[in-house]
Design a binder for these strands. Sequence first.
DNA 1: CAGTGGTCTAGACCACTGG
DNA 2: CAGTGGTCTAGACCACTGC
Lengths: 265, 265
Amino acid sequence: MAIHTSSLTDPAALAGDAGAAAGVAPAFSPLYQQIKVLILQSLQAGEWKPGEAIPSEMDLAARFRVSQGTVRKAIDELAAENLVVRRQGKGTFVATHAEQHVQYRFLRLMPDSGDTNSEGPAERQIIDCKRLRAPADIARPLSLRTGDAVLQLRRVLAFQGTPTILEDVWLPGGPFKGLTAERLATHRGPMYALFETEFGVRMVRAEEKIRAIAADEASAMLLGVPVGAPLLSVERIAFTYNDLPMELRRGLYRTDTHHYKNDLS
Amino acid sequence: MAIHTSSLTDPAALAGDAGAAAGVAPAFSPLYQQIKVLILQSLQAGEWKPGEAIPSEMDLAARFRVSQGTVRKAIDELAAENLVVRRQGKGTFVATHAEQHVQYRFLRLMPDSGDTNSEGPAERQIIDCKRLRAPADIARPLSLRTGDAVLQLRRVLAFQGTPTILEDVWLPGGPFKGLTAERLATHRGPMYALFETEFGVRMVRAEEKIRAIAADEASAMLLGVPVGAPLLSVERIAFTYNDLPMELRRGLYRTDTHHYKNDLS
DNA sequence: CAGTGGTCTAGACCACTGG
DNA sequence: CAGTGGTCTAGACCACTGC
């Protein structure tokens, strides 16, 4: 491994050796990137669980035989990607969807007046939860084969008594074996927190495609709006480590009292 | 200034002195943050224009009497905020909306199939451009007073012959004095690039509120969709340095062939 | 080749947390 | 008070660019 050849005893050998055999460029990779990959591997291997502290910078520096500054830069990037949270004086912790002061980290729907906290927690109602064989348009985004087992879940979120979000969620059957409507209903806190504690699946990032559509009969009924009313359609693919898709979610949002907020920079 | 008291000759005096008089906490501010503010001030003062190189890290370190590493960390943050672009071997450059390989940095609308480049440049058509006194709902988000002069602009963007975006843009009359429909029509490239070169206004970040609405008669006509068709309503406030709002934009997007893409992390 | 940003180190000291 | 992350420095060397 490149790390061990580029330690204190031989700081000259820096270039990564991955891909050096082929005719392609040697793809120079700085030491801190290599350390970052090693920490990442420990994270996905579950060496440290969500919410727990990872070893101190000094410990990691000793383990990898590099200076603290190099470990520091690796952790800086992990923190920038929200995989890890630094707390001065305490340590560095594996990020988690539970115990996070923002209840829903990936939900961008905000009430038109007041902040998210002022309207209190969402009232959740599970409409449906069943196993089925994935049709092509579900299997593809989840990197599954058509016909593979998936879990489908339908629920409604209401804010202050007004049903606002109708969501269909699809999960790969393998990693989420044993997930039931019962378990979901009794769980408090974000769904992604339950995924972490019960199934060891941590959602790391997501992509959303947003459209405006007209409510069909079923959706209109569940959300309490007229048929044909404009709704925000939000299709989300959520990824765990290694850009592995682990959830497909199709949501319909009422935007008469709420809006989808996005910050560009 | 704090910088000069915490130079090489007196590296002990680090704490910022801002706000030390009041009973509030002294608000410790690290050196690199102070340097960042100084560079920021030079940026908004126009000491270096968009597209130009700023002084090298060594030069800035000498100017501010700090080490290169400290300047480096300041620039790192500016680069993370897209205010500045680093190019190895060449220098650090003031970010610009022109000459940027992504044509529209703040536009999140993507064609459903293929990438942004495959559909070629947007065809732009100015519908209207006039001066008026700002009503309250326009003045407020622009931090103006009701009745202040604003410029209103309406245009349609079409992709491959299909009108897709209808936008109303409001700009404060002062900074944009002299902007005409003629000038906009003859200009090639992003509108924000013209704002930089002609008016010295650089948009740095933006906030968007997204809703689904039904097309009214005027919008339906201009976009070539039936009245009542669902459209994506995108309200954007764009800010220049110092979080100063400089543009209000209300867009209606057709989402039958395109979608709004958002990455969450 | 000189000049730029990028990496890496070693060591000192500071701010914050908790026992 | 010890341990953690956070700041700052000084110096060496590397990778990339352009003359």
